[in-house]
């Protein structure tokens, strides 16, 4: 078991390397020049060239890559070209809003989606099932920002129930924090609820068709007991997988949601960095998100062994 875990962890290194090389090449082989952005409107060529030199952008790509990887290995994520702050401090600054948003969204999603999925599977082929499934398809057919605008228009501008935008750290004012988080979390959850409800339903239906469930039913065990004791436990595995792969979806939703609700999180940081060609920041952020994605999926893989007694390594 320990050997297996070690192997799996080591296997993530080449994947991270692929990400690093890909991002680096994408940034350096396409036209674009952070120096011109820093220099501004009235810059001359010589001024731009001087700034470029100071940033080390006139060195060969291989050298730049080696310098960057060397920095990473020394625990240094680099320094933002534009603001001069360290990327680590930028991330530390911008991570809390995103972590809170993602956490609240996840809790909201699981609280809503799993019961929806169970209900749909339990009432399979009834109007309940069809209604839940139709709603869930709708959930990922409408762009996130449209949902966000509709919620703002209705609940913030017309009804004044919630603030329009912004972020307050929970430590500063917990009530304000909660009020400002509710609409963005609902917006972001809309896609995610759809996905997880569908998956819960599908895997429950799979499990309900298994022999041991049929046996249990045949033995006359109460339907609710069958559902919760046998079926749901086994259905948890595919649902976990979706939570893992859905993480990517969550990130794309986060980028848009943060823009619509003006939440100063990592998603906006990345988009801003891309538009302003802040190479060190883009590199570090994409590497970091990829790393988290890999870690989440690894943890989920490993947790199978705990959830499913049939899987043994």
């Amino acid at each position: 078991m320990r050997g297996y875990i070690t192997r799996r962890v080591l296997a993530t290194i080449p994947v991270l390397l692929v990400v690093a090389v890909f991002v680096f090449l994408l940034l350096r082989l396409t036209p674009g020049d952070p120096a011109a952005i820093i220099a501004g409107d009235t810059a001359t060529d010589a001024q731009i060239a001087a700034i470029r030199h100071n940033l080390g952008l006139d060195q060969p790509i291989v050298v730049q890559f080696a310098l960057w990887v060397g920095q990473l290995l020394h625990g240094n994520l680099g320094t933002s070209i534009l603001s001069g702050k360290t990327v680590a401090s930028l991330i530390a600054d911008r991570a809390p809003p995103t972590i809170w948003l993602a956490t609240i969204t996840m809790v909201l999603t699981i609280v809503v989606a799993v019961p929806m999925g169970v209900l749909a599977a339990w009432r399979h082929k009834t109007w309940v099932d069809h209604l839940i499934m139709s709603l869930s398809v709708l959930g990922f057919s409408v762009p996130v920002f449209v949902i966000g605008y509709l919620l703002i228009g209705l609940f913030a501008v017309d009804l004044h129930w919630f603030p329009v935008q912004g972020y307050t750290p929970p430590s500063q004012d917990f009530w304000a924090f909660l009020q400002k988080m509710i609409l963005p979390a609902i917006t972001l959850a809309s896609i995610y609820v759809a996905l997880i409800a569908r998956m819960t339903r599908a895997s429950l239906l799979d499990v309900l068709g298994e022999d041991y469930v049929r046996t249990a039913r045949a033995k006359g065990i109460a339907e609710r007991k069958v559902l919760f004791r046998h079926a749901l436990r086994n259905a948890a595995i595919p649902v976990m997988t979706v939570i893992g792969t859905g993480f990517a979806l969550l990130i794309s939703g986060v980028v848009v949601t943060e823009s619509v609700f003006n939440i100063p999180g990592l998603g906006r940081l990345t988009v801003d960095a891309i538009f302003s060609r802040d190479y060190p920041t883009i590199q570090a952020l994409i590497l970091l998100t990829s790393g988290i994605y890999i870690a989440v999926n690894l943890l989920i893989d490993l947790s199978y062994t705990l959830l499913d007694p049939r899987i043994r390594y």
Binding site: P14, V15, L16, L17, V18, V19, F22, V23, L26, L27, T30, P31, G32, A248, I251, S252, V255, T270, V271, I274, F275, I282, L285, I286, T289, S290, G291, Y293, I294
Partner: peptide, 24 residues
Amino acid sequence: MRIMDGLMAMPSVLLAIAIVSLVG
């Protein structure tokens, strides 16, 4: 598969924004 894992690990929308913004 390592390359595919790497591509899959990158957040797709961010990757797409980067490609479009950088390439034009």
